[in-house]
Write a protein that binds this DNA or RNA. Structure first.
Lengths: 246, 246
DNA sequence: TGTCCGGGTTGATCTGTATCAATGTGCCGT
DNA sequence: ACGGCACATTGATACAGATCAACCCGGACA
């Protein structure tokens, strides 16, 4: 298969590398995708989709951050997915949003209408194969998060989240976004709390504790320096490094 | 496509209906599957796979219950999946177990060696399509569970688990396993606790509270009667009924 | 028939995190 | 330069659920 050695391949003129859609595509397939794709932008805080309401598009995140949330009427909210550039959102075969989707920063997405996208899937079996791999990766990530939510302490949760964001900042090609050891948090304390199943006060307290213990340094509210990534990993409660090599 | 009207189709002589593998298969495809399948049995408590160790098979649960767990060295354990008859376990393309898999009752599984199964996948695109649907369903379930683990109270968690087991006891063809309103718990209090992110003591206490409040009746340790399923659902903390119709 | 043992329940107490409340901080618009 | 506001930190207290501990129950087995 041509292009197979490149794990990810740019989607024609897409400024980012779609993890699912464009990997392993032939040039004519990229053309076919290009004909049905279109871009959309959202501003920070904007609601993209609401659970239960019609959603007739699927999309790749081009830039910015979005969240998937589930919540109960009394206001309790749980973040169930963090969408970063190259992530895919939307489910082939389903015409209603299953989660609330919100832009937490300014956001650009590359969209496809669901129906023509599904038609293309039938012509490009490797895209469906790739979607299956991604879905299984997401499932593994969700189950890791279940361990975090069910059994980890507040401190371990914070450390795990920071480690996750660092790992996600490292591109699959090995390049690093930004300085090594400096993490730009793409989310507020409230979003962190909703991801971790904690309150913002507990998030804040544990961040200061980690700072006082020398595990992290805070540079402003949103930038975190990690002098020793191994020390951070040791705080996550995980046995292993989650498959990272250093 | 023949057999499409039957949502599930028996895999040749399999005593159960595989949700993924055999749905929508043509007779010759069922034959091909039959040639590479084999059965295995485990006794209650037996370990089937260990995270990180080689696992060269995928399988469907025929009868009995198994669990997927993740745990940390200090003993904290989180159940990340409950495997009931017709569930699929194992990941195409991966040769190591990602979770600990344990039989909690006597168990029969229908196995396929990974490699020939993957080869068949390439010849039967609808099986991969079905696997994608299942993976996405599992992902939705995992995310629902994240809401439970992150934000629900102990009482809501117990009610949610009971509701889940009731729902899973209802076959997709509409038939009900066992009496309506009578649930046979396939798992111990410890397993329940590990699924719900609680301790066994809390599980026990909340079950007695639900009993005293008339939501459930306990008949022995493992059998639960639910006089009013709606009342149970009202205790789960969920807005809706999860797509069930009554 | 006794006792052993895994699983379950119940009680007393402890503790990590939530809750309630006050204060700090940076940024934007005017 | 100055409110005003959203976001964040810090402190005091409350409480749900964990922990520690005792006891119960029923089945296996000598």
């Amino acid at each position: 298969m041509a292009l197979a050695s490149a794990v990810l391949h740019d989607c024609s003129d897409c400024p980012i590398r779609h993890r699912a859609v464009c990997a392993r595509c032939e040039p004519d397939e990229l053309d076919a995708l290009s004909r049905i794709k279109f871009y959309k932008t959202y501003s920070a805080g904007q609601i993209i989709a609401i659970r239960g309401e019609p959603l007739e598009t699927v999309a790749s995140i081009v830039s910015g951050t979005a969240t998937l949330t589930r919540s109960i009427e009394d206001g309790r909210t749980q973040l169930v997915g963090l969408l970063l550039p190259s992530d895919f959102v939307g489910r082939p075969g389903r015409s209603e949003a299953q989660y609330d989707v919100t832009a937490v920063t300014d956001l650009t997405v590359c969209c496809f209408h669901r129906k023509p996208f599904e038609d293309l899937l039938d012509e490009m079996p490797h895209v469906r194969e790739r979607l299956l791999e991604m879905a299984l990766d997401e499932l593994d990530a969700a189950r890791d998060w279940m361990l975090l939510l069910g059994r980890k302490t507040a401190r371990e949760r914070i450390a795990s989240l920071l480690a996750l964001i660092v790992k996600r900042s490292i591109r699959p090609d090995g390049g690093v976004l930004g300085d090594k050891g400096r993490v730009e948090l793409p989310i507020t304390r409230e979003t962190m709390a909703n991801y971790l199943g904690l309150t913002i006060e507990t998030v804040s307290r544990q961040l200061t504790r980690l700072r006082k213990d020398g595990i992290i340094q805070l540079e402003g509210k949103r930038t975190i320096l990690i002098p020793d990534f191994g020390a951070l990993l040791a705080e996550t409660g995980d046995d292993d490094d989650g498959g990272m090599i250093f």
